[in-house]
Write a protein that binds this DNA or RNA. Sequence first.
DNA 1: TAGATTGTTAATCGATTAACAATC
DNA 2: TAGATTGTTAATCGATTAACAATC
Lengths: 212, 212
Amino acid sequence: MDNIKVASAKTIARLSIYRRLLRNAMRGGQASVYSHELAEMVGVTAAQVRRDMMEIGFSADSRSGYNIREMIGQISRLLDSPEGENVAIIGMGKLGCALFGFFAGHSNRLKIVAAFDNDPGKAECVISGCRCHAMNRMKDVFARKNIQVVMLAVPEDVAQDVAETAVAAGAKGILNFAPVLLRLPDNIIVQNIDMMVELEKVSYVTRENTRN
Amino acid sequence: MDNIKVASAKTIARLSIYRRLLRNAMRGGQASVYSHELAEMVGVTAAQVRRDMMEIGFSADSRSGYNIREMIGQISRLLDSPEGENVAIIGMGKLGCALFGFFAGHSNRLKIVAAFDNDPGKAECVISGCRCHAMNRMKDVFARKNIQVVMLAVPEDVAQDVAETAVAAGAKGILNFAPVLLRLPDNIIVQNIDMMVELEKVSYVTRENTRN
DNA sequence: TAGATTGTTAATCGATTAACAATC
DNA sequence: TAGATTGTTAATCGATTAACAATC
């Protein structure tokens, strides 16, 4: 159970979504769910759900389906760090503040515990209920608060520099919102959210789709 | 040339990124680029770049490589709507305002031309330099400004309702930031950006990666 | 039992890559 | 020409799905 390791990030994404929907269902009083029901909620095939459950070693009763509470538990054992995960936001411009508000409202295991910005007007202030440190304090704060994962929400022209600073300070994983390919050591995990590209995709596909 | 149609959204994403880097290169005075150079900049293989160029019907001189200006032109002919694309942001909370700031700073062909929010304190005001309308004015504004693509940045509990309103008002493509599976007619293009899921992915993969 | 669902594998699908003759 | 790059296909890879015997 503890040594399960899911290969694909896509699977992780689906598991995260399963869990969210299952929590809603549980709040609604539902106790168990069939693969085809969950599939319908998430927008995947039933076979996909069953294969994912197989992959995390979770099984169902062929009469009543999957036990929701246990399924949430199993997904959480896999996805969540037992000690919780402390996350920092680097860059407290509009986007950084928006991210802070978004994540502060939601998660439980993932906690935004620090923010960084080089604007002297922000540094060492409390913004949106979160203490904002100067960039040069990363190493200290990362160590003290046990931070390995950061969200990078700085302008693109400084993204590479700031990312290097973060890595030097001990960051191991970066969720990068800057439209820049970060050049970092191989052992650093980088996931990009490129909103410009996503909007261009929607725009293009929509146009193609409405053409006829 | 006008009837080229790229099948995959992944290809569109790469083309968008190629173009961004090529613009930077052109600004730096570079006139042409080899597939392996562009590949290195973007973080893909040279074969991938060549196949993408093949797909959009653009070719190179085997001595000097791809002409950057023409390549940008060809990608733009494919990606950009000739008349430009007018986009609306629905939901002018922190995230909506952040998106506005982000896109207002960047794009050329994609223009944020309207915003909507139901907060009476925001409706009909000008926020971040953009007029903010009440939700019930979508149909009118979409028609007047020729808007088909929207970015949905509202809280998850109202996302489905607001999305339906937007579709009824004429939206054909939605970039959805709410962590919700939108149920909409098949002919509506929906692209989700699920920041919670992305952060959980980074967190998980980082943990697995640093385990040993 | 009867019937619906699960677990599981082989088949399918689509995207990526390796490889190399053609090109400039 | 010589040499590096391109255009292009077959091979590879990984993820998804169809299908069905096993299960409750």
